[in-house]
Design a protein around this nucleic acid. Structure first.
Lengths: 270, 270
DNA sequence: CCAAAAGTGTTTCTAATACACCCATGT
DNA sequence: ACATGGGTGTATTAGAAACACTTTTGG
């Protein structure tokens, strides 16, 4: 912010009142949210059909313009995370505890045909949530599987589990989000964000296997988790038996305090 | 971007021509750059004195508004990294190869007193560069030492090597940048970005020691670097002896192709 | 010769991996 | 009884850390 549009030698108060934002050709600022969860062992993402042009009818990440001042639509967003949560709850109800973090900002001049739109992308990691009903704005929304980088990259729908391409550069944002999630599983306790408040070690392993896309050695994983201080803590309870064919009841854990894991869980060799 | 300010049932072309950005109260978008280097074993950051209000005269990260359309000031920035490099080269000349990456975006409603300013922060990691002359816009700029989180946190200048507080929330951005650099040294080849094209293993170790703020075991570090595939490759040359008291001449290396390190260099125990 | 810095050898210890095995529960 | 999944024991191996030592240079 060293380069101002106006050079003013007056006192600070005089400057503030005479400031004219118009000279900077302000851009529109949006937030887009890549909300990830795990269903049936594969990553899913919350998508919404665009109700308006451009690219009306395409799937897109939930998003919307950042509100910079109070209006009849609603109050201004105090900060960017508030805006991200707001656009997300317009599509689906969220539990009280939700993991939200910034992914990055996308601002190529031509990424939106209307005008320069600079989009601050957020990631949400959530446990398996119910399917969204038709939202407040009557836009269709759904949790859809993410099956690999460039899911819609070749634009072919319905082949090999693919999905049509997302609107704007949202395919790239989504791929960046999954790649970030993969990396953060190694050295943070992020995986617990995909699970309900209490969970089993096997469920935790399922998160790693779904996001990393490969199986892990169950016995060693179990030990490694318990050997990492602060990752999980035992609740004292056992899981009530889930349906199928037998097996010992697993112990229940909840997330420990630690955000960073020492040592990390490396996915190098296996 | 699912929430548009205008609900239009017409065709896409009609929508584009009738679109009115004004309804969204667009924010100003800036880029701010935390350019880091290492001098005499401690991290330094490029700062510029603010030439205009608000906070005129305070040190701040180099920054400026993103140009969203061509004007007499200059052409529009094609993408955000272009804007970051532009505002940085206004303060100091840069070498051809420069490591630039996005840090994050800061958009709290009250972070700038003029209006809502959303700032996309970038990081630059550079080898030791000459002191900037007085820049094109006559703003004073200098490489100043970063001595710890909250360098200016208590607002006291001149005590304990401290520095006055930076403008806006730039102290926080700078601290976030250093913390990110610390983490990335572990699992990427980022450290080489702080060095000239060829360097010695000892110089590489100096980068780790400066950023992590502690000494490392020289012999084990040496072996570990050479055991990490793709981190460095030998040039075949030796460093020409630097001044002081004796010592064997070190081999010269250049950066290898690898961006990610397997295994990582953990700073856990040592 | 001596000090200083680069680089290698070697021992010790810890942690990752693989695999065998026991425990608890459902059918 | 037996299949299934949870959890533990243990041997093997790879890597991290500590320390001694050799090599090469400047004074």
């Amino acid at each position: 912010m060293g380069d101002d549009g106006r050079h003013d030698d007056g006192d600070e108060h005089g400057f503030l009142s005479s400031y004219d934002p118009g000279v900077f050709a302000p851009a529109a600022v949006t937030v887009d949210v890549a909300a990830l969860t795990i269903r049936e062992g594969t990553p899913h993402v919350l998508l919404a059909r665009r109700a308006a042009h451009p690219q009306r009818g395409s799937w897109a990440l939930p998003g919307g313009f950042v509100r910079t001042r109070d209006s009849r639509i609603g109050p201004a967003d105090p900060d960017l995370p508030d805006a991200a949560l707001r656009v997300l709850t317009e599509k689906t109800p969220l539990p009280a505890e939700i993991h939200l973090e910034q992914l990055g900002t996308y601002g190529a001049l031509d990424r939106d045909p209307r005008m320069r739109v600079i989009s601050v992308a957020y990631m949400v990691f959530a446990p398996d949530l119910p399917d969204p009903g038709t939202g407040r704005d009557t836009t269709e929304a759904a949790w859809l599987p993410w099956t690999g980088p460039g899911t819609g990259g070749d634009g072919v729908a319905g082949t090999g589990g693919g999905r049509e391409r997302l609107a704007f550069d949202h395919d790239r944002i989504l791929d960046d989000a999954v790649e970030r999630a993969r990396a953060k599983l190694e050295y943070t306790s992020l995986a617990t964000a995909f699970l309900p408040p209490t969970f089993t070690i096997t469920a935790l392993r399922g998160v790693y296997e779904a996001i990393w896309g490969r199986t892990l050695h169950a016995a060693n994983f179990h030990r490694k988790i318990l050997a990492t201080p602060g990752f999980v803590e035992h609740t004292g309870d056992l899981a009530d038996r889930g349906g199928s064919g037998g097996g010992r009841r697993a112990r229940l854990y909840r997330g420990g305090g630690a955000a960073l894991l020492h040592p990390p869980l490396l996915r190098g060799a296996q």
